[in-house]
Amino acid sequence: MVLIIGGAYQGKLDYAKVVFFIEDNEIFACDGAEIDFSRRCIYRIEEFTLACVRENIDPTEYFRSHRERWKDSILICQDIFCGVVPLGEEMRAWRQATGRLCRYLSGEAAQVSRLFCGLEQRLK
């Protein structure tokens, strides 16, 4: 599994498409608390974690329980956990849940890349 993180609009998906030859029909863009792991590239994982927070689901447990299904996937998540602690409780929970999930996924990943203004920085 490859984990790609980075800020908003930094070129994470563009990098994945070019380097791993991902076609548009292989991308699942998260928009709720369910993930279609049949797609090779799982994008916007931060939207999945936000939905999980709203539905009281632990996103790390969700990933752990589907491990066999994503162990060869390209996972893309925005690093929303770098800014100041938000005032709202939901945003705070989102920030923490996303940070924890990325830490778990980093541990499982063969490669971890961070995108900065379109440039890849290899973290693992």
Binding site: G6, G7, A8, Y9, Q10, G11, Q78, D79, I80, F81, C82, G83, V84, P86, M91, R92, W94, R95, T98, F116, C117, G118, L119
Partner: peptide, 29 residues
């Protein structure tokens, strides 16, 4: 670098963030 925080911004702020990121990426290249 204003791209890594837990917040849902209004549309104007997102236009600004997306625009700045596009400039940054062009300049970086």
């Amino acid at each position: 670098y204003i791209y890594s925080d837990a917040a849902c911004y209004d549309e104007t702020t997102e236009v600004y963030r997306a625009g700045l990121a596009a400039i940054d990426r062009r300049l970086v290249a």
